[in-house]
Design a protein around this nucleic acid. Structure first.
Lengths: 144, 144
DNA sequence: GATGTTGTAATCTTCTTGATTACAACATCA
DNA sequence: TGATGTTGTAATCAAGAAGATTACAACATC
């Protein structure tokens, strides 16, 4: 099972705004071309990024811009914005283990803290990478 | 998007074998009761654990046993055994970004190493937790 | 008001997961 | 040897999630 592609699409969106934002209006249509993802999906992701305060969107005239400094946005911000981890966390528990069985009754209690540790390790690494780091590589590759 | 419940079910299976293996035969039927997961699914997970060398299964007579010392099995072993991460990795890329767009052409190159770092951080944490750690908590809770 | 864009609902397809049924293969024991 | 209980596995089904697509209202700008 994999983390949905919305996350990599979102980073792609930032890379496009960063690269093309100076010269042209970056619309959902344009982003759809670059990512090869449906423009409605792009608009949905943009909405989530906007709700998280990461981008600004011009309603009628169109075009998205980055709402913060590159060094003030990290990959965890983006991940949290687009992966609707509705309380569930990274790991999916089997629901309704037997209350009769002493193992079933306690499995949640046993695993919860350990899986939180794992998820936190992942999130810490995500938060250590900023868009500044990403765009450094984007600039290097795009301009060569 | 979440990691499938097969992983927590697999840990639950180990906890059952550890707890009940001495007194009774731990069959897929029994595990199905404790986990509240279909016995065929249990058998499938057991097969994967067996293929990874983590459990032994008695074919005709029935019953599963743990194939290694508890301290020699960690959560990453179990994760890799049951999450068929077929080369894909934790993150799902949007396929076919535009080759015409300089960003689309390079987004994979930009993100790959960073996402590998994130995945490695998660795997390192998973591998730091052994079944011995898990069973310590299981014993404490089950026997109280 | 014409135009281009965003916001959003509704529907459809595809994929994945897990549930379920069915049955062959196998080991054990009477 | 045959009855019994179990595993291995294929086939089918249902449910949920993700993304594609169509459609259209809301909005800003000219």
């Amino acid at each position: 099972m994999q983390i949905s592609s919305r996350f990599t699409v979102a980073v792609h969106i930032f890379a496009c705004i960063h690269t093309f934002g100076g010269e042209r209006k970056v619309t959902s249509e344009f982003l759809a071309m670059s990512t090869n993802v449906n423009p409605v999906i792009i608009r949905k992701i943009l909405s989530q990024l906007k709700a998280a305060g990461l981008v600004d969107i011009a309603r009628g005239s169109g075009g998205a811009t980055i709402a913060k400094q590159l060094c003030d946005i990290n990959l965890l911000d983006i991940y949290n914005a687009v992966e609707c981890v509705g309380g569930g966390g990274l790991f999916h528990f089997h629901e309704n283990p037997s209350e009769q069985c002493p193992v079933g009754r306690n499995i949640h209690r046993v695993l919860d803290d350990k899986l939180v540790r794992v998820q936190t390790a992942m999130e810490n690494e995500l938060s250590s990478i900023t868009l500044e780091d990403v765009m450094r590589d984007v600039d290097r590759l795009v301009k060569s």
